[in-house]
Amino acid sequence: MANEVLAQPALWGAVGGLVVAVFNQAFTFWKEHRHRRDEHQRERTRTALTVAVALESFALDCANCIERIQVLRKLPGPFSHPDFPALEMPASPDWRWVRPHLASEILGLALKVKASHQQLPKGPSLPGSPNARPDGDELCRRKSLVRFCPR
């Protein structure tokens, strides 16, 4: 009987210690999982913002180029082609956070832009050509468009 009285608290102590250890491990695992999930979300957000800024910058450069071409098409005289913007992707994005089909589209866009630039005609065009423009110095003298002047 004396052994049962001493064994009972020892058994409860062992079971209680086991329960506390399991709870502690489960809580630690949950905390680490949450921390990793939050860290991965921050990385996904950072990558998305990096890529979005690069694409927005390219879109803004394209819009400015289109505006410049529209202004230059209205001017008479000999024309030469403008410098078209290049798509420059930052080297820092971690592409593993971008879905594969989106990464393929984004990275493929840079190739499409390069291919488009190679298909454009080089050198001056004939006067009156709809896709040509005068050189920058002549344009500045004619219209005093300071923002189009070479720096």
Rank of each mutant, 00 (worst) to 15 (best):
A115V: 12
E4K: 13
F29A: 14
Q119K: 13
A10T: 10
A115M: 11
S125P: 02
Q25G: 07
R37K: 14
R73M: 00
F27T: 12
C149I: 04
F27P: 00
S125L: 14
L6E: 15
R68D: 09
P150N: 15
L49Q: 14
P150Q: 14
S57L: 00
A59P: 00
L126T: 14
L145F: 06
P127G: 06
P82N: 03
L109I: 06
A103P: 05
D137I: 01
L18Q: 13
R68S: 05
H117A: 08
Q118R: 15
P82A: 03
H33L: 05
V20A: 15
D135H: 09
D38M: 11
P100K: 14
C65K: 04
F29K: 13
M89N: 03
A52V: 04
Q119D: 12
E88A: 02
D137G: 07
H33G: 10
R34S: 13
K31Y: 11
L75E: 11
G16S: 14
L107M: 12
P76R: 15
F148M: 08
L55G: 11
G128D: 07
S92M: 01
I66P: 00
A63Y: 10
P93H: 02
A91T: 08
R133L: 02
W95P: 02
A63M: 09
F79Y: 04
F29P: 05
T47M: 02
A10L: 11
M89A: 04
N24H: 11
T50M: 10
R99W: 04
N24P: 05
L75C: 02
S129I: 01
A14W: 14
E56Y: 08
T47H: 04
A59S: 12
T47C: 09
G136S: 13
D83R: 15
F79E: 02
G17M: 09
A48P: 01
T47I: 02
Q25E: 10
D137R: 07
V20S: 08
F84P: 02
S80P: 03
S104D: 08
S104K: 13
R142W: 11
Q41C: 00
Q25K: 06
E32A: 09
C62L: 12
L120I: 11
Q118W: 00
G77H: 09
D83M: 10
D83W: 07
P134V: 04
G136T: 12
W95G: 00
V22P: 02
V98H: 01
S116E: 07
A54G: 08
R133C: 12
S80Y: 01
R151Q: 08
R46V: 02
A21K: 06
R99Y: 05
V51L: 15
P130M: 01
L126Q: 15
V19I: 11
W12C: 09
L139S: 05
I66S: 14
P134I: 03
G123I: 03
K31G: 07
A26M: 09
R42L: 04
R142P: 01
K112G: 10
G136Y: 02
T50P: 00
